[in-house]
């Protein structure tokens, strides 16, 4: 099967800062990729280039067969295939949990209210939040917010899920519930690209680990190879610091 995400020689700069430096990566359908690396290494920027939240300065990004170029239409088509989960959850604060989930199915997919509600209810059940359907985001714990945000992204039935440090804003005792939901998704065969510092989770769930530094991929390969037998001293040094 051809890769579902193809990134070729992309570069991106913000003023003097080279966020992405001639980087290439491809992801196969069903593959779970974890991106690790020090802060400022370009991990989040790379992720945001995969659904058109950031435009690359040069290079090629093709997601689900759709090239992300200047066209807003293509960016829109890509977003229908790609769900994104943010570090700060970004639930819509003026809507309750159920309305958060129903919005895109109704507005983007133009489903009837009852159909949207059925879908929302299904995914709320999946992340274990049915009882919180009528709660507002501010009334949820961090872990509940992030599970709701994952359910919201799933409502459009995406082929790919992007996670931008999904547990970094959570208290340690809440990371488990979010990682459990993500693991379930991975087990069901979802293609996932995850920026995280949770090395244990990477080891358990991911097929591939990518180590980034200074806008470049320093090393990438099978999870166990990268984590246990890193070829690059920079990777080994980073892992030593993170795992200590």
């Amino acid at each position: 099967m051809p890769p579902i995400i193809e990134v070729e020689n992309i570069s991106k700069r913000y003023g003097d800062h080279q966020a992405l430096d001639n980087l290439s990566i491809s992801v196969d359908p069903g593959e779970v990729v974890v991106i690790i690396g020090p802060s400022g290494s370009g991990k989040s920027t790379l992720l945001r280039c995969l659904n058109g939240l950031e435009r690359v300065d040069s290079g090629k990004v093709v997601v689900a067969g759709i090239p992300l170029d200047e066209s807003t239409k293509n960016a829109h088509l890509v977003r229908l295939n790609v769900g994104m989960v943010f570090q700060q959850f970004e639930l819509f604060i003026h809507l309750n949990v159920l309305e958060n989930l129903m919005l895109a199915p109704m507005v983007v997919n133009r489903l009837a209210k009852t159909d949207a509600e059925r879908i929302a209810d299904y995914y709320l059940g999946k992340v274990g939040l049915r009882s919180k359907a009528k709660s507002f985001p501010s009334q949820l714990s961090g872990g509940e917010k992030q599970r709701a945000a994952i359910a919201r992204a799933l409502c459009l039935n995406p082929k790919i899920m992007l996670f931008d440090e999904p547990t970094s804003a959570l208290d340690p005792e809440m990371t488990g519930e979010v990682l459990a939901v993500m693991k379930k998704l991975a087990d069901e065969g979802m293609t996932m690209v995850i920026v995280t510092h949770e090395i244990g989770f990477a080891r358990e769930v991911s097929d591939t680990v990518v180590f980034m530094d200074s806008g470049k991929i320093v090393e990438s390969g099978k999870t166990a190879d990268v984590l246990d037998y890193s070829r690059h001293p920079r990777t080994a040094e980073f892992l030593r610091k993170v795992l200590r």
Binding site: N51, H76, R79, L80, G83, M84, F86, E90, L103, V107
Partner: peptide
């Protein structure tokens, strides 16, 4: 309004008009 609200809406495929109208 924090920028993240707009980014979340755009990630869900909302158009610019829908972003203004609903969020």
């Amino acid at each position: 309004i924090p920028r993240g609200q707009s980014e979340a809406a755009m990630s869900l495929g909302l158009s610019r008009f829908q972003l203004w109208r609903y969020i």
